[in-house]
Amino acid sequence: MSPRHLGSAVLVAIVALATGFVLAGQIKAQLLTPSNQLARYQALVRSVQELEVTNADSRRQIAALRGQIDTLESDAAARSAQTQALRNQVSDLRTHAGLVAVRGPGVEVDLRNGFPGPDTGGQTGYLINFQDVQDVVYLLFAQGAEGIAVNDRRITPLTAFSGSAGEVVIDQGPPQSSPIKITAVGDRNKMVAALDDPSALPGIRARQIQFQLHLTFQGSPDLALPPYDSSLQITHVSPA
């Protein structure tokens, strides 16, 4: 190897070594924090996933228990006219409370996220939120809905909507996000007419224009609603 080649090789080795040290320093300094953030984030996500699995499992158990209780009540009612009369009353009350699956004519409403505009500055108006779902549910009940389900979660007399941007939490269920399907059984024509009214749902209509939020609906002669599968406990109320 000539002295010139040797010099070049040494120079390259020094440059590579220096680059390696600089990069190692860079990686150590800049990537340690994101890695820790990532670990913390992953831990949070894992917690959510585990809690959601527990949630789904509990709701399955509740549905199964209600089925078993229904069978036992049915057996008891077969042995006594008085029990049968009571059971009929309870069945009717359960149907109105959303604890029984129902079907009938109605309407399906589809809500989907729009697109963030270029000048929205971090606004989340393009996302479907729980107030949008709440507004549609109230509108449908005011226009003849007898039962409603949101993404197959049945609405009950005690239902509450909550959540953060883009997330919709209904009662004790897991968070849901776009697309959201709201299914209502009831006076189909009245509900379709109300949804067709451009003055209804002003918040959603405005964001349809601004963010291309998606709202479509379709009447149907036969829709099915599942029974409610969560807690319907009241612990502070007593008959007056």
Binding site: T54, S58, S162, Q172, S230
Partner: peptide, 14 residues
């Protein structure tokens, strides 16, 4: 996570 804990407690009670 807080909401899910509360929800799961309610489901356990039910």
């Amino acid at each position: 996570i807080d909401d899910l804990h509360r929800a799961n407690d309610s489901l356990d009670a039910e």
